[in-house]
């Protein structure tokens, strides 16, 4: 559905995107992560026909972005990272305007608009002027705007940026809805763990290149079978060490600050059994917690384990 080959964009001597290769299947939600300046926005800008590649190719829904930009525009809904709205239009008028831009049939507009406003939770704001909506509501309205012409592909650049936690949660709900609707979505973000909740596949961009690509499901399975745990007790550390060492799933123990940090490579049932073994051995436990997984580190480690950085999604 989305395919790029050696996609490159140069601004003078600066190479913003460097021979980018992507292959995103239909119905996939693809997350694109990277630091500021990694080339995410430039890539999305080329895919949305706003700028032209210096070299290479990009094909969306079977149409080349350079050779057939008009067909590409019909196939995509684009939400830029920093967008403005027409303040003095009502929500209904705002969506109608964009539907008219795509030549959507007048009879279709009314029903589709109602359906989309319902989906993004703005059905009670139809007559409200856009400037009276909160930032979070405006961003959800933008998603509805992207969908007014029912495109098969959505290109969303940082759709959750600048939102408070509550609005981010609402936005995640809307984005999950897109996946259920079978849309092919490419989302950029600089927050990996947020994308992991929505995306099917994730690619990391670094200095205009794809550093790694992996399926989120593989990452989640991996993270659930490998956890870093922190244990504190009022017992002798050597006793704790002997019990932990006896469990075949425990690796890399480190005693410090009155506790022990260790990696547990096993299921949650196995972890319960380890806990029972510690109690049975007389260890007086005061705390057992799971340390937050550095998902990016895990992601990079995982992609190198599965055969280095695969440049194709």
């Amino acid at each position: 559905m989305i395919f790029t080959q050696h996609l490159t964009k140069k601004y003078g001597r600066v190479t913003a995107v460097d021979r980018l290769n992507l292959s995103i299947r239909e119905g996939t939600v693809f997350g694109m992560v990277g630091e500021n300046g990694a080339g995410k926005t430039t890539t999305l800008s080329m895919l949305s026909t706003l700028s032209t590649p210096t070299s290479g190719h990009a094909v969306i829904n079977g149409y080349d972005v350079v050779k057939n930009p008009s067909a590409v525009r019909h196939s995509i809904g684009f939400m830029p990272d920093s967008f403005g709205v027409y303040d003095d239009l009502s929500v209904d008028e705002y969506l109608e305007f964009y539907a008219d831009c795509y030549g959507v049939d007048k009879r279709v507009i009314a029903t589709r608009r109602s359906d989309l406003l319902e989906r993004v939770g703005l059905s009670d704001k139809r007559s409200t002027y856009v400037n009276a909506l909160s930032r979070g509501m405006q961003q959800r309205l933008e998603i509805a705007r992207c969908l007014m012409h029912d495109p098969p592909v959505l290109i969303l650049d940082e759709p959750s940026s600048g939102l408070d936690p509550r609005s981010r949660m609402d936005m995640r709900g809307v984005l999950r809805g897109l996946r259920e609707a079978g849309k092919t979505v490419i989302i950029s973000s600089h927050i990996l763990h947020e994308l992991a909740e929505i995306a099917d596949e994730i690619g990391i961009l670094r200095r205009g290149k794809v550093a790694a690509v992996a399926a989120v499901q593989v990452m989640l399975q991996h993270s659930s079978s490998q956890r870093t745990l922190w244990l504190e007790s009022r017992s002798d550390p050597s006793l704790v060490e002997s019990v932990l060492a006896a469990d075949g799933h425990v690796t890399s123990m480190e005693f410090r600050d009155g506790g022990v940090e260790f990696v547990y490579m096993g299921t949650y049932e196995g972890q319960s059994e380890l806990l029972a073994a510690l109690v049975a051995a007389g260890v007086k436990l005061t705390q057992l917690t799971e340390r937050a997984t550095d998902i990016e580190a895990l992601f990079l480690r995982l992609t190198s384990e599965v055969g280095g950085s695969s440049h194709d999604a």
């Binding site: 525009r73 019909h74 920093s82």
Partner: peptide, 13 residues
């Protein structure tokens, strides 16, 4: 300046 142009240019107009 209102940052509405980019979206307008991604429409088939």
């Amino acid at each position: 300046e209102r940052r509405t142009l980019a979206v307008l240019l991604t429409t088939p107009l």
